[in-house]
Design a protein around this nucleic acid. Structure first.
Lengths: 226, 226
DNA sequence: CGCATTTTTGATACACGTCAATCTCCGTGG
DNA sequence: CCACGGAGATTGACGTGTATCAAAAATGCG
């Protein structure tokens, strides 16, 4: 099954023909705006922020979508988007559901369940100390899904961080605090810059996957605060 | 008595026969636990907190359900609950979907859309200053839905506040800070105790509905902080 | 080379967390 | 009926983590 996947994905002619349009978006680019007309998408790679318009007219962070998440499922009902979607990092989308106009009931329920779980995780990103919040956000972005293995290098995960402002909006911190915490994680060895070439905003970091527990997080907060 | 009146007025005697079990829960009572087997429910009145089990085994606030929200929709797929549900205030539930085993596609989509919007609002509850967060939470609890008018008294909304600890979990503040902010809202005239009789934890407050904008909130923060 | 944008770093202030005492209200039992 | 104890809420004093304001550094681009 793994072999089949690899073959069809990389070279199978049928897969190539069946493949639909897969738009690419670069960091900071608008994917769609609230009230726009369109369909739902699966996030194949990268991450997306969704913003809602508040009663006072302000745009504010609403939720996050990472690899394999579905965005814009509400268009199946209303025909138009509820939120505004923006790329947090370079990302690739695919129309959803694939090939059908109406998704199977199970498929829709899976989407609902996954969206709920994601929302709960995002809410959790706004609890606790700043260093831990930023660390958990990085882990979430680096850990795209259980099904599809993340890009890995020697047991570590690679991640391209969103802008500091975006990370601040997500964690309910300020841009400056996020920047400090990222530096802290670097000094603590949790985040390791992979290279200094290319655009600084597009540098990828290696994330120590064993830094997921809170015990080490306490160590970060204490040790690196000097 | 009162219930009979409402039923006969809204739907006639058939509705009475078709009516299903409507369990009641008191403040702090567990409705269901994660992993439990059961079905989905509509919140007819009151409010419910949903908690998830974190990777480290802790239970932490995941999301909120108020009047007319659906909880446990994931059981339609998995047969068991993803979250743990607890009553924030006295609440009444009703099995969902009513009378059918499988909900119509539109109904499911509506649930999805509503849940997403609710999650976005809850995320918004963790932004900004403490006084404003608590005020917005109170408004959310007092403003159950657009379709079903809230209990009203002379143009004001009535609300029974959850425990300070629950409010703290939702807003990502501490119990003490929430208590201070509730006092502040009282002094500012946004919250008016309706009576001093009965259990203190079950006292209802009148909420000034015109205090929804942020301009007056700024006034609270400045004036009452002395 | 100079300007714009993003990020980083520093100094200071304050809003909130923490710890602790007190109060209210209830249930229980003498 | 009142004394006692417990749970939840309120209030106070104090410390600190983060916001705020400000400046500099890093990098891309014209």
């Amino acid at each position: 099954m793994l072999k089949d996947e690899k073959i069809s994905r990389s070279a199978g002619p049928q897969a190539l023909r069946a493949k639909q349009w897969r738009p690419h978006f670069s960091r900071g680019q608008r994917i769609y705006a609230g009230e726009d007309h369109g369909g739902a998408w699966r996030v194949l790679s990268g991450s997306v922020r969704l913003d809602r318009e508040e009663p006072n007219g302000e745009q504010s962070f609403a939720t996050l979508a990472v690899q394999n998440d579905i965005i814009g499922a509400e268009t199946l009902l209303f025909g138009k988007y509820t939120f505004t979607a923006t790329a947090l990092s370079t990302c690739v989308l695919e129309p959803w559901p694939e090939g059908h106009t109406v998704p199977a009931g199970d498929s829709l329920l899976h989407t609902l369940a996954r969206t709920q779980r994601r929302a709960a995780e995002v809410i959790g990103l706004r609890c606790g100390q700043a260093a831990d919040r930023v660390r958990r956000l990085v882990m979430m972005l680096a850990h795209p899904s259980e099904e599809i293995p993340a890009r890995q290098v020697a047991g570590e995960l690679l991640v391209v961080l969103p802008s500091r402002q975006d990370m601040a909006d997500i964690t309910a911190l300020t841009l400056e605090t996020v920047s400090r915490m990222v530096s802290q994680l670097r000094h603590a060895g949790i985040l390791a810059p992979q290279s200094n070439a290319g655009h600084p905003s597009q540098r990828s970091f290696a994330v120590l996957s064993d830094a997921a527990d809170t015990s080490s997080a306490a160590g970060i907060g204490g040790g690196a605060s000097l």
